[in-house]
Design a protein around this nucleic acid. Sequence first.
DNA 1: TCTTGGTATGTGGTATGCCAAGATTGTTGG
DNA 2: CCAACAATCTTGGCATACCACATACCAAGA
Lengths: 227, 227
Amino acid sequence: MSNSLKIRPIVEAASMSTRIYEQLKAAITAMDIYDPDANLKLDERGLSEQFGSSRTPLREALTRLDQDGLVKILPRRGIIIVRRTKPEILEMITVWAALESMAARLVCEVAGDDQIAKLQQLADTYDSTQVEQHMSEYSDDNIRFHSTIIQLSQCELIAEMTDGLFRHVRAIRRRTIHEKDRAQRSVRDHSRIVKALGKRDADLASRLVREHTMKLREHVEQNVDLD
Amino acid sequence: MSNSLKIRPIVEAASMSTRIYEQLKAAITAMDIYDPDANLKLDERGLSEQFGSSRTPLREALTRLDQDGLVKILPRRGIIIVRRTKPEILEMITVWAALESMAARLVCEVAGDDQIAKLQQLADTYDSTQVEQHMSEYSDDNIRFHSTIIQLSQCELIAEMTDGLFRHVRAIRRRTIHEKDRAQRSVRDHSRIVKALGKRDADLASRLVREHTMKLREHVEQNVDLD
DNA sequence: TCTTGGTATGTGGTATGCCAAGATTGTTGG
DNA sequence: CCAACAATCTTGGCATACCACATACCAAGA
C-alpha cells in the first residue's frame, strides 16, 4: 500500500443547467424520434418540475439544445424535438464523408503503426461471411471503427463535428433496412481502408473512406423512408 | 384600384435575445481579438444596460455565443471572448479544406454551366500580375470565391459549418503576412480550380481545392504568430 | 347547424432580486 | 515591512413573477 493519501480530484460539480442539458441530450438521443407516435413536444414548466429546478436553468439548457439543432424553440407555441428531413440526413452523411475522408488522410501522416494495428483488429473482428449473424453488435462496432479513425487523426475539431453528426445519423439507423449484402461489403471496405492506411497511401485511404460513406448515403437515399 | 384592403404581413420582430445575439456576434467578429491590448472581458450587467434590456435575454445571447465558441463563460470569474490558439486555427483550416473539397466535388455534379461561368468571372477579376496592387480588395474577393463554391454545391450544411470557420479564420488574417508571391499563386490556383469544375472533373477539382486551402494552412503555420 | 367574437388557458420572453463563490481590497499582528 | 486573515465587492447561477401572444374552447346570433 502507498503511504500517501489517496485523493481523487474533486469532480467539479457541473451547474444545474449543464446537467440538465446533458440529461436532455442523452434522453433525446436515446429515444426513437422517428417513431410516428413519438411525443416530440417538450414542456418547459413540466420539465423544470421534473428536474427539481426553476425554469431558468432549464431554459438555458434548451437554448443550447436549440443551438445544437436538437430541438426547436417556437415562441409562444412550444418546444419540439426536431426531426431531420431526409435531405438533411443526406447532407449530414455527405459532410461526414468529407470529414472522415480528411481524417483518414491525417491518420496516414500522424498515426503510429501500433495504432493502425489496433484499427486492423477492429476491422477483423467480423468475417464477411458471418457478419449477418451478428448484425446488432456489428452496428456498434461499425461506428466504433469509424470513430477510431477520427480519433487517430488527432484532429479535435473533426471529432467534435462528427460527434454531432453521428448522433443524428444513428437515430435513423433504426429505420434503415439491413441488407446482408451491405454488411458484407462494409466489412470488405473496412479491410481495404486499413490496408491503405497501413501503406500510408493517403490518397487511396481518403478515397476509400469517402466512397464507403457515400455508399451509405446512397443506401439511405434509396431505402430509408422517414415520415 | 382594388376594392380590398392591402395588408402586408407584419414582419415578425426578432426577440430581444436574438437581436442581442446577432449584434454581439457581429461586434466580436468585427473587432481584432488578437490585439494584445484588446479588452476581452464582457460585463453582463454593463451590457444589458447598454442594450437597454434586462440580464435574462442578454444571458441567453451569451449562452448561444458560448455554444458557438465565440465566448467562454467562467462561473463567478467573468465572460471572456475566446482567442483561438494556433493549433485550433490550423484545425479549422484543415476542416475547411475537407468541406470545401467536398463542395467542389458536388459542384461538378449539380452546378449549371452558367453558374460556373460566374465563378470564372470571380476568378478572372484579378490578373496574377496586378494582384499585389489590390491586396485589400483581393482579400474579400478571395473569400467570395470560396464561399461561392460552397453555395453552388447546394449543401446547406457545408455552408453553415464553413460560415463559423470563416469567422474565426478571418480574424487572424489581420495577423498574416501578405507575401506577394502567395497572392499570385492564389490567383493561379483559382483559375485551375474553375477549369477543373468546368470540365466536371470532380477528382481533380476537389484535389485542387484541398491543396489550395492546405497551402494556406502551411502558410499560417509557418508565418503567423499569435500571442 | 354554422359562423364569429369573446375568453380562458398555455407557452415562451423578459424583468428583477437574491445567493454563493471567487476576486479584491483593507487590516492587523508578527 | 510583510504575511495572513477578514471584510467587501464582483459576477454568474438560480428562483420567481409578470407579460404578450397563440391556441382552443365556448356561447350567442344568424
